[in-house]
Structures are given as structure tokens and as C-alpha cells.
């Protein structure tokens, strides 16, 4: 469960989000929609506590941003999968090493890591490409790798920031369908996008943000 209470954050040079009230259930699929510069990325960063609120608080699972310690933030992030527009894959590591990274952080054994990375790559359709470097994959493949890296730690929620931003329409739809599949298995998904056409008519909750405020939820 995610809960945002009277949340505000303003950057020094202006911009940010203000007075956000919002909550999300454990199995929900929600789109965060709004034009560029409306505050989607800021809101997501507040949720995974890359930014800490100046007013109000964020509650995610058992963690409350109010007076949270660095170490708690680390533990909270193990329950949250992040997917980015620019994939955030490490260029100097191959696909296997990229996907394995979250498992090293948790402290899994070598055998477990090999098994789980293989399963998760099969799941996103990248089986057999373990030794490829990010530069040797297409945009769609890199984005699926990014999803695999988010999924491998079996998170409670996935936060996706414009994940389709660099993908063509067909690949974008495939990604959304893939997210729906993940959601059916019980993972909450919050996906930010400025592309209304991509998400309309799929029956998911739509949270609209404009100028840093939520208009309709």
C-alpha cells in the first residue's frame, strides 16, 4: 500500500509538487498521466524516497518517510522495482550481470542468482542473451531488461517513469500488456506517462497531474 499525505516538494529554482493526497492498493494498476513538466518524475522520486517531502509524508508498506533512516530507505527499495525511460542499465556489464545486481545486494547465493536471472530473462523474452551488453540490444529489449531487473527481487510495487518514452507504439503496447500480466500476479503498478492515447480504454485507474497538483484520481 502506498499513501501520500498532504505531500509537497518544491525545488530551489521552482517547480515540484504540492498538496498531493493519494493512495494505492496492493494489487492496483494506475497510470500517472500529465504533460511534460507536470511533476510525474518528482512524485515518483518522492515515493521511492530519492527526494524526501518538505511537507507531508509518504507511507509505502511498513515504511514512513517521516524521520526515516538511510538504511530503512535501502530496505524499502528492495520492495520497490523501478523502471526508467532511459533504462539505467550499466553499459560495461552484460545482461546477466545487470539483472543479477539486485540479487547481489540482497545477498543471494551464486546458484540462486544463476537460476533466478535465467527465469526472469526467459519471462521477458530475453533468454539466451545473457552475454549481450546493453549496447548490443534494441531499445525494446533494453526496456524489457530494465523490467526484468525490477522484477527479479519480486517487489510489491513497480514504479515506471515513462517506460515507453523511447519505444515505438507496438513495443509500447507490448510493454503495457506485460505490466498487466505482472499486475495480475499481484504486483501493484504505478506508471507515469504523458501519452494518453497509449493508456486510454484499458480500464485502469488514471491519476491526472498538472502543475504539480493532482486533478483527478
Amino acid at each position: 500500500m502506498i499513501q501520500l499525505n498532504n505531500l509537497s516538494y518544491t525545488f530551489e529554482k521552482g517547480g515540484g509538487v504540492s498538496n498531493i493526497e493519494m493512495s494505492m492498493q496492493d494489487d492496483e494498476f494506475a497510470f500517472l498521466i500529465g504533460p511534460t513538466g507536470s511533476g510525474k518524475t518528482t512524485l515518483l522520486r518522492l515515493i521511492y524516497m530519492d527526494l524526501l517531502p518538505q511537507v507531508g509524508n509518504v507511507i509505502i508498506g511498513e515504511y514512513d518517510s517521516d524521520g526515516i533512516k538511510q538504511k530503512q530507505i535501502a530496505f524499502m527499495r528492495r520492495k520497490v522495482g523501478m523502471v526508467f525511460q532511459d533504462y539505467h542499465l550499466l553499459e560495461d556489464r552484460n545482461l546477466f550481470e545487470n539483472i543479477a545486481l539486485p540479487l547481489h545486494v540482497i545477498g543471494c547465493s551464486k546458484d540462486e542468482i544463476v537460476d533466478r536471472v535465467k527465469d526472469s530473462l526467459d519471462e521477458v523474452g530475453l533468454g539466451g542473451k545473457e552475454s549481450h551488453y546493453p549496447g548490443e540490444l534494441s531499445g525494446g529489449e533494453q526496456q524489457r531488461a530494465c523490467v526484468a531487473r525490477a522484477m527479479i527481487k519480486e517487489p510489491d510495487v513497480i514504479l515506471a517513469d515513462e517506460p515507453t518514452g523511447n519505444l515505438d507504439p507496438v513495443t509500447s503496447f507490448e510493454l503495457i500488456k506485460f505490466f498487466e500480466e505482472i499486475n495480475r500476479e499481484g504486483t501493484a503498478i504505478l506508471m507515469a506517462s504523458h501519452n494518453y492515447n497509449l493508456i486510454k480504454g484499458r480500464g485502469h485507474r488514471i491519476i491526472e497531474i498538472r502543475n504539480g497538483s493532482i486533478r483527478k484520481s
Binding site: 521511492y48 538511510q70 538504511k71 535501502a74 527499495r77 528492495r78 520497490v80 545486481l101 539486485p102
Partner: peptide
């Protein structure tokens, strides 16, 4: 470092 912090690595 950034990636590690995002996936929940401790300091």
C-alpha cells in the same frame, strides 16, 4: 553507485 542505491543497497 546510483543503480546500487536505487535497488536498495545499503551504504
Amino acid at each position: 553507485i546510483e543503480s546500487l542505491q536505487l535497488i536498495g543497497a545499503t551504504r
